[in-house]
Structures are given as C-alpha cells and as structure tokens.
Design a protein around this nucleic acid. Structure first.
Lengths: 354, 354
DNA sequence: CTGAAAGCGCTTACAG
DNA sequence: CTGAAAGCGCTTACAG
C-alpha cells in the first residue's frame, strides 16, 4: 500500500528516502513565491548578475535568509557547464610535503571559490585511472597533478585535451607546470660538502623511474661528482623508500652504507636521513663528526631532532599558490607560463652546508 | 556580429566558453543515437538498474566506450537528490594526524563510491561557518567533523537536522561519534611513570576550551594525581601549542619547566615532546636519565629520533574507517552507534612505560 | 524488454 | 527593471 503510494508520487518518494523529516530544501521558487517576484528575479538578485531595484533586492534577500535558502550547485553546474571545483591527484596525501601542499591548495582555492576534490593515485596506475575518471565524472573545471604520480605522459597529454591540467613538482613537455630547481640545489649541496672537506659521497634515494624531480636531484649529484676526479661516489636507489622511508633508511645504513663509510650521505628526503642517523647512532657512529648527512624537505621536526638536520627547504605554499592560480588561468582561457621555484639550503648540525 | 550570433545560440555560447575546441562532451543521447535505442535504455544499461536484453546491453556498452561517454554527475545529483559525496571538516589538514586521517578517509570513501570534499576550519568559527555552507551548497550527503573544530555544539546539533553528521575524535551529546579513550590512557601512563619512581609531574598541553579530547587527557592526569598524596604535579596549558608546537615546546621548557625540574613531563603531543627534548638537550639536561618525557600520537619519526620517544599510539585508520561507515549508515537511514577506540602505550627511550 | 515524457533547480536570452 | 520559457543531462514511473 505504501509502496504503491510511493510509486505514484515520485516527489514524495524522494522525501521519504531523505528521511522521516519533511525537510523540503528551499529553492529559488520558494523564495520567489515568498517575495512575490519571479524565479528569474530571485536568481538575478542572489547572483548579483543584473541590475534589480533596490527594494526588490532587499525583499528577496530577506526572504532568502528567512527561508534559509541554499544554492543547489548541482543545478547550477548542469546549467552552466561549470562546477567551480578542481580536482587534485596526489600519490598519497598523508606525507608532510603533500599534506602541507593540500592545506595550501585548499586555502588558495577557497579564495577563488573553488571546491577541491582530492584523490590519491597510491603510485598505482589503475587507481590513478579511476581517480581521474571520478574527477571527470564530477566535472571538475581543472586538475592538478602533484608529485610522483604514475600516469604515463601520453595519458596526461590526452587528458589535457579534455580539461585544463597543471602539474606540480613534475614536468611533462607541453603541460603547464610548477617545479623546483632540484638539480642546481643538489649540485650546490654536494659542492658545499666538498668544500668542507668531504671526498667520498653516497647519494641515497628512491628509484627515479620517470619522475623528473627525483631524477634531477640525483643528476645534480652526478654533475658535481663527474667534474671532480678526486672524489669517490656512489648512488643507491631503493624501492623500499616508496614505503616506510625511516625504516628503509635505517636498514639500508646497516646493510650497505656503514661498510662504505662515506664522508657524506646525501639523501632525497628528511625521513630517509632521520632513519640513517638513527641507525648510525645505534651503531656507535656519530653524526656529523664521523659522517655528514643531509636531508630534503625541511620537515617541521627536522630543526628539533638531535642532531638537527641540514636539509633543503622547498616553499610548498608557493607551489600550491602557483598551481591554483595557473589552473584558474587555464580554466579562464588565460595564457599560463611554467614556473620554477628556488630551493633553500639549510645548514644545521648534521652536515656543514654554510 | 559574433556577439550576436552567440546570443542567439546559447548552446554555442557554452561551447565557445569551453574553449576553441569543439569538444562536445558525449551524453546519453549521443550514445542512444549511436546504438539505435532510447536514452532510457542507455541509462538502464549503464547503471545496471533494469533487465535489458544481452545484445542491447553489449551494443550500448560498446558505443558508450567508443564515444568515451562520461557520466555527468551534476545531472544525476539534480535528478536523484544525492551527490554521493561527503564533506569533511578538519581544523587543519597539514598535521600528521589529520593528514593520515584524510588519506584513510579517502580510501574508505572510495570503496563506498563517495567523493570527498575536505575543508579546513583553521580553528576559526567564521571560516568553519563558510566551509560548512560551501559543503551544503555542494549538497554533500553527510559531513564528518574531525578533531578540534570551533563550532558551537548548538550549531552542530542544528546542522544535524539537515544532514547526517558524525564527529571523530570529539563527542557532542546526541551526535554519533568515534572517540579514543584518552582519559584512561593518560591515567595509565601517569601510573606507569609513578611505578617507575617518578614523584613530580608536569602535564603540558593546549588549552582545552570546549574540546573534550584534550580535556580528557588532562583529566586522566588529574585523576591519578588527586588519588596519590605523595606526588607533586602541575598542569601547564599554553595557547602557543595551537601554532608551532615544536617551537612552543622548546620555549616553554626554558621559560618554566626547567625551573620546576619534574621527574616526568607528560605532553599532549609528540611535537611538543620533541620540542621539549630539543631544548633540554641544549640545556645539558639528559632525557630520560634526568627527566622522563612522553608524547602523544606516535608520529612516524618518533621511533627514530634520539632518544626515541615514549608515546601513545592512536589507530587513525580505524577512526577513519568507522567515521566513514557510520556516516554512510546514517545517510542510508541505518542505526548508528558511538564507538570508542582503545589507545596503545608505546614505551621507548624517553620514558619507561613498560 | 523498451520508449516517451516529466521533472530535478538553476541561468539567461528574449521580450516586454 | 522584470517575467515566461527553454534547456542543461540525467533517472524513473508509466505505458506498452
């Protein structure tokens, strides 16, 4: 009996699904009726898109407020073919770099009235494919790819034909990007260590398959090494660094680095450095008197650990700000230009970089 | 001339705004035409909502794929009054606890096919109000409030009449919540320190105005202290802990704690503990032989710093999972029950908690 | 098993 | 300055 009733009145059906409450969300129509004007007028008043007499405006606004009117953005999106939302693809939002980036993106997106849909690729192509598909279904106006996602460059270029795309901390030819000057920075770090007397080096980082940011860091190292014949050097890449960098750093130190016993260890990440320092400490090796160690990222805690960590700071807020403003420009058909952000070398106790 | 043309053909206008490209996003109608069936049929095939002959299904699916059909979820939302999205309000997504929580929420939401809209209150009532409003305009099916947001309990209760709400790491009478057993845990920690010989204590944390999680931590401390007459204790609350906890921890140690020189310092956060240890180290005070220090959260790095940090682990993944499944249940009108997650005491070098 | 049609809540060109 | 009407892309009750 109830079931039949429901079938007959679809509108009621919806109400029922929404719950016991007979909450009817206020629409433009309700406001229009209450204010004694047309729906068009209410729409214009609320969006401020046309000149409406002051008294009408006031009446409409008063009724909208009284009835607690809330815009239905699905309806607006459908009509205007614009959702005022952007999608963001992170490898994993839980790392400090990405988390700070997410927070900053939220901040700048809010200023431009974009809602933000975060997704994670988990460094897994299938997951990334699904994430992007979900973003496209949601009709995001633009997409930000931040960091080491797995997507093939070709896939991204194809996608860029459908929706404005900006990549952060990664560059793909032909796609607007915001990157850091990794190569120069690591060159400079290696040089500073050399100047302070180091002659044997180990570079430690994630495998750099395809990701230009990590590749550039190692290349900066290679650049310096290959132009100095009085130096011994080795690069160690370990895929364990994609998971628990701290643990992997500790393990790798024991397994390999300790035997090499270099003057300096240059890492691609503060967590790797902290893991190494921890293992060294347990092995009775003192940092920096026995060995220098540098990190990458300047995590919040890096200045406070013992020994404090010499590292490289990346302005994440700037990255986020530029990414948001570039994708906004792209959405609005304005020309966009690639940007490169300078990194900053921070000298603390674990290595002399001054 | 162009302008006039545009005015005459609104559809074209939209195309133009979208860019030079004449990309016409494929709709159900296009697929229907291509497959020689009605729009209704295509909708049914793609949603799998009704029995359609196998051959029709195949034809439709083939055409949908060939034309690269993507659902327009704004249209679906408008029609079905359901967006399949949930909103999340964090104080600030960039802290490790919240970042890990965000990642886990994303994971569980994905499994249930929800998109997630993250927002930040920044511990600012006006910002939070705006964030919630934005979520309501987007028509989220439910909202998660995670952590110490500023919203007045009354406001949240009112809001709960409009949309299903679940709070995580916070409890408001009458609203479904997932919390931790903070009070018992800190009681147990204090007790363990007492058993290992400590008789003077300082509790250090954020001011607990309104936030029950932080309040409970301090209450657990008070519970123990007030039932042991041979003990000296003090609680220090500092609003600087809402910003840079590391720096504030260091400063507070120098300003106050050093003079008190307690046997044990119990903090409400690992970062505060790390800041304190750093300052103590610089002041020539050894942790733990001169003083024990405990943290809260078991941050990723806490096991690797020197000295490694004794702390309390909270299962964040479990929190996220429960929050998502509870809000999903609430959305689907299923009954929900509050949950409490047990914390785990981790004994390391900075304090004997075994 | 399938199609025609209504309608979700907006915005906006058009006509006054 | 204001209103009537079309239409965005879907889903679904209804009718075959």
């Amino acid at each position: 009996m109830i079931a039949m009733l429901v079938q007959k009145i679809p509108c009621l059906c919806k109400r029922l699904r929404k719950g016991v409450s007979n909450i009817h969300k206020t629409t433009l129509k309700d406001v229009a009726t209450a204010a004694g004007v047309s729906v068009s007028t209410v729409s214009r008043v609320l969006s401020g898109s046309a000149s409406i007499s002051e008294e009408t405006c006031e009446r409409v606004r008063a009724e909208a407020k009284r009835l607690n009117y809330t815009l239905n953005s699905a309806a607006r999106s459908l009509r205007c073919d614009r959702t005022h939302s952007i999608g963001v693809v992170f490898p994993d939002i839980s790392g400090e770099f990405y988390a700070i980036c997410a927070s900053a993106i939220l901040k700048y997106a809010r200023k431009k009235d974009y809602a933000v849909l975060f997704t994670e690729s988990g460094r897994n192509t299938v997951a990334e494919e699904k994430a992007v598909r979900a973003l496209m279904e949601r009709g995001v106006d633009g997409i930000l790819f931040i960091g080491d996602n797995t997507h093939d460059e070709i896939v991204i270029r194809t996608l860029a034909n459908e929706v404005p795309i900006v990549t952060g901390d990664r560059h793909i030819e032909g796609i607007p990007s915001v990157t850091y000057n990794n190569r120069e920075t690591i060159y400079a770090v290696t040089e500073k260590l050399y100047e302070s007397g180091c002659r044997s080096f180990v570079y430690v980082g994630e495998p750099t398959d395809g990701q230009d940011n990590l590749k550039m860091r190692n290349l900066g190292f290679i650049d310096f090494i290959s132009s100095h014949s009085d130096v011994q050097a080795e690069s160690i890449f370990d895929s364990r660094f994609h998971d628990d960098k701290l643990k992997a750093g500790s393990e790798l130190f024991i397994e390999k680095i300790k035997a090499i016993s270099p003057d300096a260890i240059i890492t691609s990440n503060d967590l790797i450095a902290i893991g190494i320092i921890s293992a060294a400490h347990k092995a009775g090796i003192n940092i920096p008197s026995d060995m220098s160690v540098t990190g990458f990222d300047d995590l919040r805690a890096s200045a406070y650990i013992i020994p404090s960590l010499s590292t490289i700071r990346q302005d994440i807020t700037k990255l986020a700000k530029l990414c948001v403003s570039m994708v906004d420009d792209a959405i609005n058909q304005k020309p966009v230009q690639n940007a490169v952000i300078m990194q900053e070398i921070i000298s603390r106790e674990s290595a002399a970089l001054a």
